[in-house]
């Protein structure tokens, strides 16, 4: 066998090995967390309140906190993000304004979550505490909106760009206004793409911890209003693991989180496939 041939075999073996390693790491993490966490999950674990700082009992308040936080964050971020994308893609042409917004979106995407947390803490929790209630779901959500805005904007823009231009021209040529064309033609066609971006943002909010550590307050009580402090599942996992040392409870929460993320990724993937079919 020639030397070049042998080099190729060695090189491709190494590349395959790297891929195999990556897959193994993923499977190891998922299976390990599941094997220790799934046994914890039952109806009581999901629906009971925690006892002894979460060392015993269930994770119900954290589930509620996660749902509220995700709900409020998306409710606020969706119109702003999609609106920005519409403005960038449908209303203005390349120019300074567009560049500025592009740049800030990129910059916002790069900021570490703990810095969002710092800002959320000083602005929403301290400065606006009369409005937000201090550490609260509202403070966390407003911070979360800033974090997921770049994701929503970028993905929505992509979805809008995929709408064929002849349909826009066809509608405008019939003497409809720009907004009517967007409402009736562009947005409905871009909808699956926008939805995919929203589902992925849910994943980001569910997985985020540092920013919410400083803005949600970590209360273990069931939140009664959006102005109450709360904790998400991720935050709960962290606090239980670091403060109570009861790893089984942490693994139970971890297993719930992984199941959630798998569902989210599956949904986004399925939507994305439909999207590709539609435009091909």
């Amino acid at each position: 066998m020639s030397k070049v041939k042998r080099n190729q075999i060695i090189a491709y073996s190494l590349l395959s090995l790297a891929a195999a390693l990556t897959v193994t790491i993923l499977l190891a993490i998922v299976f390990y967390i599941m094997s220790r966490g799934l046994a914890m999950i039952n109806l009581a674990f999901l629906l009971e309140e925690p006892r002894r700082m979460g060392a015993e009992g269930g994770i119900y308040p954290a589930i509620l906190g996660t749902v509220y936080l995700v709900g409020v964050t998306l409710l606020l971020a969706t119109p702003i993000g999609v609106g920005t994308a519409i403005y960038l893609n449908e209303y203005i042409r390349e120019g300074l304004f567009k560049k500025v917004i592009r740049f800030t979106t990129e910059a916002l995407a790069g900021i570490p979550s703990i810095v969002f947390g710092l800002f959320g803490f000083i602005f929403f929790v301290i400065l606006l505490r009369d409005i937000t209630g201090g550490w609260s779901i509202i403070s966390g959500s407003l911070t979360g909106v800033m974090m997921i805005l770049p994701v929503v904007i970028r993905a929505s823009e992509e979805a809008l760009r995929n709408v064929p231009n002849p349909l826009r021209e066809g509608s405008l040529a019939l003497g409809t206004t720009r907004w009517y064309t967007i409402k009736k033609i562009v947005l409905p066609l871009a909808f699956p793409g926008i939805l995919t971006s929203l589902i992925l943002s849910i994943g980001r909010v569910v997985g985020e911890t540092a920013a919410f550590l400083l803005t949600l307050g970590g209360s273990l009580l069931i939140p009664r209003t959006l102005f109450d402090g709360s904790r998400t599942l991720s935050l709960h996992l962290y606090m239980v693991a670091m403060e109570t040392g009861n790893m089984d409870m942490a693994f139970g929460t971890g297993a719930v989180l992984i199941i959630l993320i798998i569902i989210i990724n599956f949904l986004a993937g399925a939507l994305f496939k439909r999207l590709i079919k539609r435009f091909s």
Binding site: L167, S171, I185, L189
Partner: peptide, 9 residues
């Protein structure tokens, strides 16, 4: 009326 028919979906 355009070169390529562009009915709305």
């Amino acid at each position: 009326v355009f070169q390529k028919p562009n009915p709305f979906p």
